[in-house]
Design a binder for these strands. Structure first.
Length: 484
RNA sequence: GCCCCUGUAGCUCAACUGGCAGAGCAGCGGACUCUUAAUCCGAAGGUUGAAGGUUCGAUUCCUUCCGGGGGCACCA
Protein backbone atom coordinates (compact mmCIF):
# COMPACT_ATOMS: atom_id res chain seq x y z
CA UNK A 1 0.00 0.00 0.00
CA UNK A 2 1.41 3.35 -1.02
CA UNK A 3 2.42 6.06 1.40
CA UNK A 4 -0.33 8.29 0.13
CA UNK A 5 -2.91 5.71 1.10
CA UNK A 6 -1.42 5.62 4.56
CA UNK A 7 -1.71 9.40 4.66
CA UNK A 8 -5.36 9.26 3.70
CA UNK A 9 -6.02 6.63 6.34
CA UNK A 10 -3.96 8.48 8.95
CA UNK A 11 -5.90 11.69 8.33
CA UNK A 12 -9.18 9.92 8.97
CA UNK A 13 -7.83 8.16 12.04
CA UNK A 14 -6.66 11.51 13.39
CA UNK A 15 -10.17 12.89 12.96
CA UNK A 16 -11.53 9.86 14.78
CA UNK A 17 -9.25 10.55 17.73
CA UNK A 18 -10.15 14.23 17.68
CA UNK A 19 -13.82 13.34 17.95
CA UNK A 20 -13.12 11.12 20.93
CA UNK A 21 -10.98 13.83 22.52
CA UNK A 22 -13.94 16.19 22.23
CA UNK A 23 -16.15 13.63 23.94
CA UNK A 24 -18.03 12.65 20.77
CA UNK A 25 -18.72 8.91 20.40
CA UNK A 26 -17.86 8.10 16.75
CA UNK A 27 -19.77 4.80 16.79
CA UNK A 28 -23.01 5.29 18.75
CA UNK A 29 -25.41 2.41 19.24
CA UNK A 30 -28.56 3.61 17.53
CA UNK A 31 -30.33 6.60 16.06
CA UNK A 32 -34.10 6.24 16.45
CA UNK A 33 -36.71 8.06 14.44
CA UNK A 34 -35.01 8.22 11.04
CA UNK A 35 -37.17 9.02 8.01
CA UNK A 36 -36.18 7.98 4.45
CA UNK A 37 -35.07 10.98 2.41
CA UNK A 38 -37.54 9.99 -0.28
CA UNK A 39 -40.32 10.70 2.22
CA UNK A 40 -38.98 14.23 2.69
CA UNK A 41 -38.90 14.78 -1.06
CA UNK A 42 -42.39 13.41 -1.40
CA UNK A 43 -43.88 15.56 1.35
CA UNK A 44 -42.59 18.79 -0.18
CA UNK A 45 -42.82 18.16 -3.90
CA UNK A 46 -44.82 21.37 -4.34
CA UNK A 47 -42.71 23.66 -2.15
CA UNK A 48 -41.70 26.70 -4.26
CA UNK A 49 -38.04 27.58 -4.77
CA UNK A 50 -36.62 29.83 -2.09
CA UNK A 51 -39.27 28.95 0.50
CA UNK A 52 -39.02 27.26 3.87
CA UNK A 53 -41.48 24.64 5.04
CA UNK A 54 -42.50 24.33 8.66
CA UNK A 55 -41.59 20.62 8.81
CA UNK A 56 -38.61 19.18 10.64
CA UNK A 57 -37.12 15.76 9.84
CA UNK A 58 -34.53 13.36 11.13
CA UNK A 59 -32.61 11.65 8.33
CA UNK A 60 -29.50 9.48 8.25
CA UNK A 61 -27.10 8.19 5.65
CA UNK A 62 -23.68 8.49 4.08
CA UNK A 63 -22.09 11.83 3.16
CA UNK A 64 -21.55 11.83 -0.58
CA UNK A 65 -20.39 15.32 -1.50
CA UNK A 66 -19.71 18.74 -0.04
CA UNK A 67 -19.78 22.21 -1.56
CA UNK A 68 -18.50 25.27 0.25
CA UNK A 69 -16.48 25.34 3.42
CA UNK A 70 -16.74 28.74 5.11
CA UNK A 71 -19.78 30.08 6.87
CA UNK A 72 -22.12 27.99 4.77
CA UNK A 73 -21.81 24.60 3.12
CA UNK A 74 -24.03 22.21 1.22
CA UNK A 75 -23.65 18.46 1.66
CA UNK A 76 -25.30 15.56 -0.12
CA UNK A 77 -26.61 12.73 2.04
CA UNK A 78 -27.38 9.31 0.51
CA UNK A 79 -29.68 6.76 2.04
CA UNK A 80 -31.28 3.69 0.48
CA UNK A 81 -34.19 5.71 -0.82
CA UNK A 82 -32.17 8.42 -2.54
CA UNK A 83 -30.21 11.61 -1.97
CA UNK A 84 -31.00 14.78 -0.04
CA UNK A 85 -29.05 18.04 0.04
CA UNK A 86 -28.17 19.37 3.47
CA UNK A 87 -27.46 23.00 4.18
CA UNK A 88 -25.09 23.87 7.00
CA UNK A 89 -25.13 27.51 8.11
CA UNK A 90 -22.94 29.05 10.75
CA UNK A 91 -25.76 31.21 12.09
CA UNK A 92 -28.02 28.18 12.54
CA UNK A 93 -25.51 25.70 13.94
CA UNK A 94 -23.20 27.97 15.87
CA UNK A 95 -19.41 27.84 15.64
CA UNK A 96 -18.80 24.54 17.46
CA UNK A 97 -21.28 22.36 15.61
CA UNK A 98 -20.40 24.06 12.32
CA UNK A 99 -16.72 23.31 12.82
CA UNK A 100 -17.43 19.72 13.77
CA UNK A 101 -19.65 19.28 10.71
CA UNK A 102 -16.98 20.66 8.42
CA UNK A 103 -14.53 18.14 9.84
CA UNK A 104 -16.66 15.27 8.65
CA UNK A 105 -15.27 13.18 5.82
CA UNK A 106 -17.07 12.08 2.69
CA UNK A 107 -18.17 8.54 3.43
CA UNK A 108 -19.03 9.19 7.08
CA UNK A 109 -22.42 7.97 8.26
CA UNK A 110 -24.31 10.82 9.89
CA UNK A 111 -27.72 11.60 11.30
CA UNK A 112 -29.21 15.04 10.70
CA UNK A 113 -32.13 16.92 12.25
CA UNK A 114 -33.33 19.92 10.32
CA UNK A 115 -35.94 21.96 8.56
CA UNK A 116 -37.08 21.18 5.04
CA UNK A 117 -36.80 24.03 2.55
CA UNK A 118 -36.27 24.55 -1.14
CA UNK A 119 -33.16 26.41 -2.23
CA UNK A 120 -33.21 29.42 -4.55
CA UNK A 121 -32.04 27.11 -7.32
CA UNK A 122 -34.96 24.78 -6.63
CA UNK A 123 -33.28 21.93 -4.76
CA UNK A 124 -35.26 20.48 -1.86
CA UNK A 125 -32.91 20.54 1.11
CA UNK A 126 -32.69 20.13 4.85
CA UNK A 127 -31.30 23.03 6.87
CA UNK A 128 -29.25 21.20 9.47
CA UNK A 129 -29.95 22.14 13.07
CA UNK A 130 -28.08 19.23 14.57
CA UNK A 131 -25.67 16.68 13.14
CA UNK A 132 -24.71 13.41 14.81
CA UNK A 133 -21.82 11.18 13.78
CA UNK A 134 -23.25 7.66 13.50
CA UNK A 135 -20.18 5.87 12.13
CA UNK A 136 -16.81 7.32 11.23
CA UNK A 137 -15.53 6.09 7.87
CA UNK A 138 -11.83 5.30 8.02
CA UNK A 139 -11.33 4.64 4.31
CA UNK A 140 -11.86 6.97 1.34
CA UNK A 141 -15.03 6.36 -0.69
CA UNK A 142 -14.98 5.84 -4.48
CA UNK A 143 -15.09 8.87 -6.80
CA UNK A 144 -18.20 10.92 -6.07
CA UNK A 145 -18.95 11.62 -9.70
CA UNK A 146 -17.58 8.74 -11.75
CA UNK A 147 -18.56 6.15 -9.16
CA UNK A 148 -16.73 2.86 -9.10
CA UNK A 149 -16.01 1.55 -12.60
CA UNK A 150 -13.41 -1.16 -12.10
CA UNK A 151 -15.25 -4.41 -12.68
CA UNK A 152 -13.02 -6.46 -10.44
CA UNK A 153 -13.47 -4.12 -7.48
CA UNK A 154 -17.20 -3.86 -8.12
CA UNK A 155 -17.55 -7.64 -7.76
CA UNK A 156 -14.99 -8.26 -5.03
CA UNK A 157 -15.99 -5.25 -2.95
CA UNK A 158 -19.69 -5.08 -3.65
CA UNK A 159 -20.23 -2.73 -0.70
CA UNK A 160 -18.23 -0.08 -2.59
CA UNK A 161 -20.25 -0.71 -5.74
CA UNK A 162 -23.48 -0.32 -3.80
CA UNK A 163 -22.44 2.89 -2.06
CA UNK A 164 -21.02 4.47 -5.21
CA UNK A 165 -23.34 3.34 -7.97
CA UNK A 166 -27.04 3.96 -7.76
CA UNK A 167 -27.74 1.49 -10.61
CA UNK A 168 -26.18 -1.26 -8.54
CA UNK A 169 -28.44 -0.46 -5.61
CA UNK A 170 -31.49 -0.37 -7.85
CA UNK A 171 -30.53 -3.63 -9.53
CA UNK A 172 -30.43 -5.59 -6.31
CA UNK A 173 -33.64 -4.02 -5.10
CA UNK A 174 -35.16 -5.20 -8.39
CA UNK A 175 -33.76 -8.68 -7.82
CA UNK A 176 -35.47 -8.75 -4.44
CA UNK A 177 -38.74 -7.69 -6.06
CA UNK A 178 -38.38 -10.49 -8.64
CA UNK A 179 -38.06 -13.05 -5.85
CA UNK A 180 -40.91 -11.54 -3.87
CA UNK A 181 -43.15 -11.63 -6.94
CA UNK A 182 -42.29 -15.28 -7.60
CA UNK A 183 -43.08 -16.30 -4.02
CA UNK A 184 -46.29 -14.30 -3.88
CA UNK A 185 -47.68 -15.86 -7.04
CA UNK A 186 -46.84 -19.41 -6.03
CA UNK A 187 -48.20 -18.86 -2.53
CA UNK A 188 -51.42 -17.48 -3.99
CA UNK A 189 -51.68 -20.55 -6.25
CA UNK A 190 -51.71 -22.81 -3.21
CA UNK A 191 -48.09 -23.94 -3.25
CA UNK A 192 -46.28 -24.59 0.00
CA UNK A 193 -42.68 -23.42 0.32
CA UNK A 194 -40.37 -26.08 1.71
CA UNK A 195 -36.72 -26.55 2.59
CA UNK A 196 -34.87 -29.72 1.70
CA UNK A 197 -31.26 -30.73 2.44
CA UNK A 198 -28.38 -28.83 0.94
CA UNK A 199 -26.01 -31.50 2.22
CA UNK A 200 -26.99 -34.74 0.55
CA UNK A 201 -25.60 -38.27 0.83
CA UNK A 202 -26.33 -38.67 -2.89
CA UNK A 203 -26.65 -35.88 -5.42
CA UNK A 204 -29.24 -35.99 -8.14
CA UNK A 205 -31.94 -34.30 -10.15
CA UNK A 206 -29.63 -32.84 -12.77
CA UNK A 207 -26.64 -33.86 -14.85
CA UNK A 208 -23.72 -32.01 -13.28
CA UNK A 209 -20.65 -32.54 -11.17
CA UNK A 210 -21.15 -31.85 -7.46
CA UNK A 211 -19.09 -30.18 -4.76
CA UNK A 212 -17.98 -32.77 -2.24
CA UNK A 213 -17.62 -32.28 1.48
CA UNK A 214 -17.19 -34.39 4.57
CA UNK A 215 -19.20 -34.83 7.74
CA UNK A 216 -16.73 -35.40 10.57
CA UNK A 217 -19.02 -36.91 13.19
CA UNK A 218 -20.53 -39.37 10.72
CA UNK A 219 -17.21 -39.77 8.91
CA UNK A 220 -18.87 -39.78 5.56
CA UNK A 221 -18.85 -37.94 2.27
CA UNK A 222 -21.68 -35.53 1.61
CA UNK A 223 -22.49 -33.58 -1.53
CA UNK A 224 -23.81 -30.05 -1.94
CA UNK A 225 -27.01 -30.42 -3.88
CA UNK A 226 -27.02 -29.86 -7.62
CA UNK A 227 -30.84 -29.77 -7.62
CA UNK A 228 -33.77 -30.14 -5.26
CA UNK A 229 -35.78 -32.37 -7.57
CA UNK A 230 -35.68 -35.78 -5.88
CA UNK A 231 -36.48 -34.55 -2.37
CA UNK A 232 -39.31 -32.38 -3.65
CA UNK A 233 -40.87 -35.34 -5.46
CA UNK A 234 -40.75 -37.33 -2.24
CA UNK A 235 -42.86 -34.54 -0.73
CA UNK A 236 -45.34 -35.04 -3.58
CA UNK A 237 -45.41 -38.74 -2.69
CA UNK A 238 -46.07 -37.64 0.89
CA UNK A 239 -49.15 -35.76 -0.21
CA UNK A 240 -48.11 -32.09 -0.06
CA UNK A 241 -49.45 -31.85 -3.64
CA UNK A 242 -47.98 -28.42 -4.53
CA UNK A 243 -44.51 -27.62 -3.28
CA UNK A 244 -41.74 -25.25 -4.21
CA UNK A 245 -38.25 -24.46 -3.04
CA UNK A 246 -36.38 -21.28 -3.96
CA UNK A 247 -32.76 -21.61 -2.91
CA UNK A 248 -29.16 -22.17 -3.86
CA UNK A 249 -27.90 -25.11 -5.91
CA UNK A 250 -24.21 -25.82 -6.40
CA UNK A 251 -22.52 -27.20 -9.51
CA UNK A 252 -18.84 -27.85 -9.76
CA UNK A 253 -18.52 -26.63 -13.34
CA UNK A 254 -17.04 -23.75 -15.27
CA UNK A 255 -17.81 -20.09 -14.71
CA UNK A 256 -19.26 -18.03 -17.55
CA UNK A 257 -21.51 -15.08 -18.20
CA UNK A 258 -24.45 -17.35 -17.42
CA UNK A 259 -22.90 -19.81 -14.96
CA UNK A 260 -21.95 -19.23 -11.34
CA UNK A 261 -20.94 -22.25 -9.19
CA UNK A 262 -23.65 -21.41 -6.69
CA UNK A 263 -26.86 -20.10 -8.12
CA UNK A 264 -30.47 -19.60 -7.17
CA UNK A 265 -33.02 -22.04 -8.49
CA UNK A 266 -36.74 -22.26 -8.14
CA UNK A 267 -38.24 -25.71 -8.45
CA UNK A 268 -41.91 -26.48 -8.11
CA UNK A 269 -43.93 -29.71 -8.35
CA UNK A 270 -47.65 -29.90 -8.83
CA UNK A 271 -49.67 -33.09 -8.43
CA UNK A 272 -52.22 -34.04 -11.08
CA UNK A 273 -50.55 -31.73 -13.60
CA UNK A 274 -48.37 -32.36 -16.65
CA UNK A 275 -45.78 -30.34 -18.55
CA UNK A 276 -48.44 -28.39 -20.39
CA UNK A 277 -49.75 -27.15 -17.08
CA UNK A 278 -46.20 -26.30 -16.02
CA UNK A 279 -45.73 -24.29 -19.23
CA UNK A 280 -48.90 -22.30 -18.64
CA UNK A 281 -47.91 -21.64 -15.04
CA UNK A 282 -44.41 -20.55 -16.09
CA UNK A 283 -45.74 -18.10 -18.67
CA UNK A 284 -48.11 -16.57 -16.15
CA UNK A 285 -45.46 -16.46 -13.44
CA UNK A 286 -42.79 -14.74 -15.53
CA UNK A 287 -45.29 -12.32 -17.07
CA UNK A 288 -46.42 -11.54 -13.53
CA UNK A 289 -42.85 -10.89 -12.44
CA UNK A 290 -42.30 -8.55 -15.40
CA UNK A 291 -45.39 -6.64 -14.44
CA UNK A 292 -44.49 -6.54 -10.75
CA UNK A 293 -41.12 -4.94 -11.38
CA UNK A 294 -42.33 -2.66 -14.17
CA UNK A 295 -40.24 -4.33 -16.88
CA UNK A 296 -39.91 -2.10 -19.95
CA UNK A 297 -37.33 -3.95 -22.05
CA UNK A 298 -37.59 -5.47 -25.48
CA UNK A 299 -38.72 -8.93 -24.52
CA UNK A 300 -42.45 -9.57 -24.54
CA UNK A 301 -43.18 -11.91 -21.66
CA UNK A 302 -46.94 -11.87 -22.21
CA UNK A 303 -48.50 -15.35 -22.32
CA UNK A 304 -48.73 -17.46 -24.35
CA UNK A 305 -45.16 -17.85 -25.51
CA UNK A 306 -44.14 -19.34 -28.81
CA UNK A 307 -44.06 -23.14 -28.63
CA UNK A 308 -42.05 -25.37 -30.88
CA UNK A 309 -40.91 -28.97 -30.67
CA UNK A 310 -37.21 -29.61 -30.22
CA UNK A 311 -37.13 -31.51 -33.50
CA UNK A 312 -38.82 -28.66 -35.38
CA UNK A 313 -36.62 -26.04 -33.74
CA UNK A 314 -33.44 -27.84 -34.81
CA UNK A 315 -34.87 -28.43 -38.28
CA UNK A 316 -35.71 -24.71 -38.63
CA UNK A 317 -32.24 -23.64 -37.56
CA UNK A 318 -30.13 -26.25 -39.35
CA UNK A 319 -32.30 -28.16 -41.80
CA UNK A 320 -31.52 -31.39 -39.97
CA UNK A 321 -34.29 -33.68 -38.72
CA UNK A 322 -32.69 -35.51 -35.80
CA UNK A 323 -35.45 -38.15 -35.75
CA UNK A 324 -34.62 -39.11 -39.32
CA UNK A 325 -31.02 -39.69 -38.18
CA UNK A 326 -31.74 -41.67 -35.07
CA UNK A 327 -28.23 -43.07 -34.51
CA UNK A 328 -24.93 -41.34 -33.96
CA UNK A 329 -23.25 -42.07 -37.28
CA UNK A 330 -26.26 -40.99 -39.31
CA UNK A 331 -26.53 -37.74 -37.39
CA UNK A 332 -22.82 -37.04 -37.76
CA UNK A 333 -23.18 -37.54 -41.52
CA UNK A 334 -26.13 -35.16 -41.61
CA UNK A 335 -24.22 -32.52 -39.60
CA UNK A 336 -21.27 -32.81 -41.98
CA UNK A 337 -23.54 -32.70 -45.02
CA UNK A 338 -25.14 -29.51 -43.68
CA UNK A 339 -21.69 -27.98 -43.30
CA UNK A 340 -22.29 -27.05 -39.66
CA UNK A 341 -19.40 -25.90 -37.53
CA UNK A 342 -19.94 -28.44 -34.76
CA UNK A 343 -17.35 -30.80 -33.24
CA UNK A 344 -18.55 -34.39 -33.45
CA UNK A 345 -15.58 -36.26 -31.97
CA UNK A 346 -16.56 -38.49 -29.06
CA UNK A 347 -20.09 -37.10 -29.04
CA UNK A 348 -23.02 -39.46 -28.61
CA UNK A 349 -26.36 -39.05 -30.41
CA UNK A 350 -28.07 -37.34 -27.48
CA UNK A 351 -25.07 -35.11 -26.92
CA UNK A 352 -25.10 -34.08 -30.57
CA UNK A 353 -28.80 -33.25 -30.35
CA UNK A 354 -28.04 -31.15 -27.29
CA UNK A 355 -25.14 -29.46 -29.10
CA UNK A 356 -27.38 -28.60 -32.04
CA UNK A 357 -29.85 -27.08 -29.63
CA UNK A 358 -27.38 -25.07 -27.58
CA UNK A 359 -25.20 -23.89 -30.49
CA UNK A 360 -27.68 -23.32 -33.26
CA UNK A 361 -31.09 -22.85 -31.66
CA UNK A 362 -30.68 -21.34 -28.20
CA UNK A 363 -28.75 -18.18 -29.21
CA UNK A 364 -31.55 -17.26 -31.63
CA UNK A 365 -34.35 -17.57 -29.07
CA UNK A 366 -34.59 -13.99 -27.87
CA UNK A 367 -38.34 -13.78 -27.39
CA UNK A 368 -39.64 -16.32 -24.85
CA UNK A 369 -39.94 -19.74 -26.44
CA UNK A 370 -40.93 -23.12 -25.11
CA UNK A 371 -39.04 -25.95 -26.80
CA UNK A 372 -40.87 -29.22 -26.24
CA UNK A 373 -40.37 -32.98 -26.41
CA UNK A 374 -36.80 -34.14 -25.86
CA UNK A 375 -35.10 -37.46 -26.55
CA UNK A 376 -35.36 -39.83 -23.61
CA UNK A 377 -31.58 -40.17 -23.41
CA UNK A 378 -31.26 -36.56 -22.23
CA UNK A 379 -33.93 -36.75 -19.57
CA UNK A 380 -33.74 -39.49 -16.93
CA UNK A 381 -36.59 -38.10 -14.80
CA UNK A 382 -39.15 -37.24 -17.47
CA UNK A 383 -42.10 -39.39 -18.43
CA UNK A 384 -42.36 -40.95 -21.87
CA UNK A 385 -44.25 -38.87 -24.41
CA UNK A 386 -47.87 -39.97 -24.65
CA UNK A 387 -47.74 -40.18 -28.47
CA UNK A 388 -44.13 -39.84 -29.66
CA UNK A 389 -41.95 -42.95 -29.16
CA UNK A 390 -38.41 -42.25 -28.02
CA UNK A 391 -39.32 -38.81 -26.71
CA UNK A 392 -40.26 -37.60 -23.26
CA UNK A 393 -42.63 -34.90 -22.10
CA UNK A 394 -40.08 -32.27 -21.31
CA UNK A 395 -39.67 -28.64 -22.28
CA UNK A 396 -37.05 -26.01 -21.82
CA UNK A 397 -37.93 -22.33 -21.88
CA UNK A 398 -35.57 -19.85 -23.53
CA UNK A 399 -35.43 -16.07 -23.59
CA UNK A 400 -32.70 -13.59 -24.38
CA UNK A 401 -30.74 -16.42 -26.01
CA UNK A 402 -30.54 -18.34 -22.72
CA UNK A 403 -32.20 -21.31 -21.15
CA UNK A 404 -34.23 -20.12 -18.19
CA UNK A 405 -36.39 -23.10 -17.28
CA UNK A 406 -36.65 -26.85 -17.61
CA UNK A 407 -39.79 -28.88 -16.96
CA UNK A 408 -41.22 -32.38 -17.20
CA UNK A 409 -44.25 -34.44 -16.90
CA UNK A 410 -42.54 -36.27 -14.07
CA UNK A 411 -41.69 -39.93 -14.43
CA UNK A 412 -43.66 -41.72 -11.71
CA UNK A 413 -43.36 -45.37 -12.81
CA UNK A 414 -40.80 -46.78 -10.36
CA UNK A 415 -39.76 -49.64 -12.63
CA UNK A 416 -39.06 -47.29 -15.54
CA UNK A 417 -37.19 -44.97 -13.19
CA UNK A 418 -35.07 -47.91 -12.03
CA UNK A 419 -34.24 -48.71 -15.65
CA UNK A 420 -33.26 -45.08 -16.29
CA UNK A 421 -30.89 -45.15 -13.33
CA UNK A 422 -29.39 -48.38 -14.62
CA UNK A 423 -28.85 -46.76 -18.00
CA UNK A 424 -27.06 -43.91 -16.23
CA UNK A 425 -24.89 -46.45 -14.41
CA UNK A 426 -23.89 -47.93 -17.78
CA UNK A 427 -22.95 -44.45 -19.04
CA UNK A 428 -20.91 -43.90 -15.88
CA UNK A 429 -19.17 -47.22 -16.46
CA UNK A 430 -18.34 -45.98 -19.95
CA UNK A 431 -16.60 -42.94 -18.49
CA UNK A 432 -19.31 -40.28 -18.41
CA UNK A 433 -18.67 -38.39 -15.16
CA UNK A 434 -21.91 -36.48 -15.12
CA UNK A 435 -24.40 -39.25 -14.74
CA UNK A 436 -27.09 -39.76 -12.13
CA UNK A 437 -26.07 -41.90 -9.17
CA UNK A 438 -28.57 -44.65 -8.48
CA UNK A 439 -30.92 -43.39 -5.78
CA UNK A 440 -32.73 -46.40 -4.32
CA UNK A 441 -34.49 -44.35 -1.64
CA UNK A 442 -36.03 -42.23 -4.38
CA UNK A 443 -37.16 -45.28 -6.35
CA UNK A 444 -38.75 -46.77 -3.23
CA UNK A 445 -40.60 -43.49 -2.74
CA UNK A 446 -41.98 -43.83 -6.27
CA UNK A 447 -43.00 -47.41 -5.44
CA UNK A 448 -45.11 -45.93 -2.67
CA UNK A 449 -47.05 -44.22 -5.45
CA UNK A 450 -46.51 -40.69 -6.79
CA UNK A 451 -49.47 -39.01 -8.44
CA UNK A 452 -49.09 -37.72 -11.96
CA UNK A 453 -47.01 -34.58 -11.49
CA UNK A 454 -45.75 -31.63 -13.45
CA UNK A 455 -42.47 -30.11 -12.25
CA UNK A 456 -40.33 -27.18 -13.27
CA UNK A 457 -37.01 -25.53 -12.49
CA UNK A 458 -36.47 -21.82 -13.14
CA UNK A 459 -33.08 -20.08 -12.91
CA UNK A 460 -33.64 -17.03 -10.75
CA UNK A 461 -30.31 -15.39 -11.59
CA UNK A 462 -30.98 -15.70 -15.31
CA UNK A 463 -34.52 -14.47 -14.85
CA UNK A 464 -33.08 -11.45 -13.05
CA UNK A 465 -30.61 -10.92 -15.93
CA UNK A 466 -33.55 -10.78 -18.33
CA UNK A 467 -35.62 -8.51 -16.13
CA UNK A 468 -32.73 -6.07 -15.63
CA UNK A 469 -31.20 -6.34 -19.11
CA UNK A 470 -27.81 -7.52 -17.82
CA UNK A 471 -25.64 -9.78 -19.92
CA UNK A 472 -23.58 -11.28 -17.11
CA UNK A 473 -24.74 -13.35 -14.16
CA UNK A 474 -22.06 -11.58 -12.10
CA UNK A 475 -23.98 -8.35 -12.40
CA UNK A 476 -27.02 -9.85 -10.70
CA UNK A 477 -25.27 -11.93 -8.00
CA UNK A 478 -24.10 -9.81 -5.06
CA UNK A 479 -20.86 -11.69 -4.51
CA UNK A 480 -20.02 -13.73 -7.63
CA UNK A 481 -17.37 -16.42 -7.57
CA UNK A 482 -13.87 -15.00 -7.99
CA UNK A 483 -10.37 -16.41 -7.71
CA UNK A 484 -8.64 -15.78 -4.40
C1' G B 1 -7.18 -26.27 -20.15
C1' C B 2 -6.41 -23.01 -24.91
C1' C B 3 -6.63 -18.04 -27.49
C1' C B 4 -7.24 -12.63 -27.40
C1' C B 5 -7.50 -8.11 -24.49
C1' U B 6 -6.18 -5.86 -19.93
C1' G B 7 -3.62 -4.08 -14.99
C1' U B 8 -0.57 3.55 -14.26
C1' A B 9 -2.08 8.01 -7.56
C1' G B 10 -7.60 6.33 -2.84
C1' C B 11 -11.24 6.92 -7.40
C1' U B 12 -11.86 8.19 -12.91
C1' C B 13 -8.47 8.48 -16.82
C1' A B 14 -3.80 10.40 -19.94
C1' A B 15 1.43 9.52 -21.41
C1' C B 16 3.48 9.66 -29.83
C1' U B 17 7.92 5.05 -32.79
C1' G B 18 11.56 3.12 -26.20
C1' G B 19 13.50 9.32 -24.01
C1' C B 20 12.34 13.32 -17.06
C1' A B 21 4.97 9.36 -15.31
C1' G B 22 0.47 13.76 -16.01
C1' A B 23 -4.64 15.65 -15.13
C1' G B 24 -9.58 15.84 -12.73
C1' C B 25 -11.98 14.28 -8.30
C1' A B 26 -10.98 12.90 -3.21
C1' G B 27 -7.40 14.20 0.70
C1' C B 28 -4.16 18.50 3.01
C1' G B 29 -3.52 24.34 3.86
C1' G B 30 -6.28 28.83 2.63
C1' A B 31 -10.74 32.16 0.48
C1' C B 32 -16.08 32.03 -0.02
C1' U B 33 -23.61 32.57 3.68
C1' C B 34 -27.99 29.48 -2.13
C1' U B 35 -24.14 25.66 -3.94
C1' U B 36 -25.28 21.12 -6.63
C1' A B 37 -19.50 17.32 -11.16
C1' A B 38 -19.64 24.45 -6.74
C1' U B 39 -15.61 27.93 -7.72
C1' C B 40 -10.69 30.17 -6.77
C1' C B 41 -5.37 30.06 -4.71
C1' G B 42 -1.40 26.85 -2.73
C1' A B 43 1.34 22.52 -1.44
C1' A B 44 1.56 17.34 -1.65
C1' G B 45 0.49 12.47 -3.37
C1' G B 46 3.69 6.82 -7.89
C1' U B 47 8.01 0.00 -6.46
C1' U B 48 3.34 1.95 -13.62
C1' G B 49 0.21 -5.94 -10.74
C1' A B 50 5.09 -9.15 -9.46
C1' A B 51 9.83 -11.18 -10.88
C1' G B 52 13.39 -11.54 -14.62
C1' G B 53 15.47 -10.09 -19.57
C1' U B 54 16.90 -6.74 -23.92
C1' U B 55 18.67 -1.53 -23.99
C1' C B 56 22.77 4.09 -22.65
C1' G B 57 17.59 4.42 -21.19
C1' A B 58 11.41 0.33 -20.33
C1' U B 59 4.61 2.37 -18.31
C1' U B 60 6.11 1.19 -23.58
C1' C B 61 9.72 -4.49 -26.32
C1' C B 62 10.48 -10.00 -24.68
C1' U B 63 9.73 -14.25 -20.93
C1' U B 64 7.37 -16.25 -16.65
C1' C B 65 3.90 -15.67 -12.79
C1' C B 66 -0.63 -13.26 -10.43
C1' G B 67 -5.48 -10.72 -10.92
C1' G B 68 -9.55 -9.13 -14.16
C1' G B 69 -12.57 -9.11 -18.90
C1' G B 70 -14.03 -11.58 -23.47
C1' G B 71 -14.05 -15.97 -26.54
C1' C B 72 -13.35 -21.41 -27.26
C1' A B 73 -13.64 -26.06 -24.79
C1' C B 74 -16.18 -28.05 -20.64
C1' C B 75 -20.79 -27.11 -18.31
C1' A B 76 -27.45 -28.23 -21.10
Amino acid sequence: MGSETSELLATRRAKLERLRAEGVEPFPHAFPGVVPVAAVHEAHADLPAGEDSDARYRVAGRLHARRGQGKMAFLDLDDRSGRLQLQAKLDVLGPERMARLLELDLGDIVGVDGLAFRSKRGELSLRAEDVTVLAKSLRPPPDKHHGLQDVETRFRRRELDLMANEEARELFLTRARVITAVRRQLDEAGFVEVETPVLQPLYGGALARPFTTHHNALDRTLYLRIATELYLKRLIVGGLERVYELAKDFRNEGISYKHNPEFTMLEWYEAYADYNDAAARLEALVAGVAQAIGYEGEIDFTAPWRRVTLVAAIREATGIDVLEHRDRDALVAAIRAAGLDLPVEDRSWPQLVDDLLSKHVEPELVQPTIVMDYPVELSPFAKAHRTQPGLVERFEAFAGGMEIANAFTELNDPDVQRERFEAQLRLAGAGDDETQPYDEVFVEALEQGMPPTGGLGLGIDRLTMLMTGRRSIREVVLFPAMRD
